[in-house]
Nucleic acid binder design. Structure first.
Lengths: 211, 211
DNA sequence: CCATTAGTGAACGGATACGTTCAACTGAAC
DNA sequence: GTTCAGTTGAACGTATCCGTTCACTAATGG
């Protein structure tokens, strides 16, 4: 049976509508929160009848879940570490640090994290899903990267996951927290944080310094 | 003029009621969010008339602001660093790291941060107030501590605030983020994070190792 | 053309919430 | 005891929202 040929008898569902609803819902939920967002408004923004929203997603929670899943999916492919495999150790670490901070600093990302954290209280599985799709996945990738460098003799790292956490945490520093609470980003300070992280990291783990 | 003698003509306002309202409001706001919390429910929980709430705080936003301010105030005195001025460098850093992580791990604190972050979008000044009352204040204190150790010749630190951020960030590592998204705390890993932070920090900044 | 499914618009029920108003009551100061 | 401000309970107006129902239209396969 050719699986892509699902005999639809009647009028087929319009994926564009589904997408429009999710887009509008995402905007609304991340701006107003779960309680604050209104399905009526979401339907209007998506140019769709309220009944269509319900027939697609069941209820408000279903819509929220779908919205989060969609964001996680978008997030998944958005950051890759493979592009940073060339140059000196210092250069590679700087590139990774900068890419990571840039990735996390985008306003959409900040909003997303704020909202998921807030709604974690209502629906813990949402928080767990986000952790798995985002941070935990990223940590494993970066830890593997560090482990590879360690086996190549560039670094001497006993606990790659811990080292990964340390590097990323130092790169973020307080900037992460500040952004979350509305403080404007300071590019200069961010740069200093990344440089400082590379310095300290190399001091602790590089087999022979890094410039 | 004796300032503590403000001639009140009629019936004086009952501070106990005010406190009860703020306590109930804090619980509600941090559990349900601004939009989700109901003034009617808050009044009932506080054992007070709804009108009394309005006469004290004007409207919902006013109540929310008062609630945040009260929490920040409570937070202010809650963490002091002076208790950690004895023992070896390693011992002192370990003690500080552990106290800080314990302070930030409390469920109330996690909830508070989640909520303030979420409401920062609606009212940016709330986020700014929290940053000033909490993290920024704490950073300055700890940076001064590091600076003192630096001038005492124990550490060699060019940028105390950056070093403070690095140490705290490493101590928190990913635990902070995980807690925010509902992942249960792992005391063993937390301990490893703090030990790792002390190791790396000393490697980078201690004049003569630590331990 | 006809059955079937997707989508629309409008209205409804039930609930909840914010913020206000009003008459009555309470308690401290003078 | 009088005065005056705090407090109460209850009700009200207005608004919003969730989720459902219903009659009706649009698109697709047979």
């Amino acid at each position: 049976m050719s699986s892509d040929e699902t005999k639809a008898k009647g009028r087929p569902t319009d994926p564009a509508k589904r997408d429009a609803i999710i887009a509008a819902a995402t905007r609304a939920f991340f701006k107003e929160g779960f309680a604050g967002a209104s399905i009526e408004q979401i339907a209007a923004d998506a140019g769709v009848s309220k009944v269509t929203v319900y027939s697609h997603f069941g209820d408000k929670s279903g819509l929220f879940t779908a919205s989060v899943e969609s964001q996680c999916e978008q997030m998944r492919g958005h950051f890759s570490i493979d592009a940073f495999a060339s140059g000196s150790l210092r250069e590679r670490l700087m590139a990774i640090g900068e890419a990571m901070v840039a990735f996390l600093s985008r306003e959409e990302m900040v909003q997303f994290e704020r909202r998921i954290a807030a709604e974690t209280e209502r629906e813990p599985e949402v928080g767990a899903a986000f952790l798995a799709a985002g941070p935990h996945r990223m940590k494993r990738v970066f830890a593997a990267f560090i482990d590879a460098m360690s086996q190549a003799g560039e670094l001497k790292v006993a606990d790659p996951e811990l080292a990964a956490e340390q590097f990323v945490s130092m790169c973020k520093g307080m900037g992460d927290l500040e952004r979350r609470f509305g403080h404007p980003s300071d590019p200069v300070r961010n740069r200093e944080r990344i440089e400082g992280a590379v310095d300290v990291f190399c001091n602790a783990y590089a087999v022979k310094g890094c410039s």
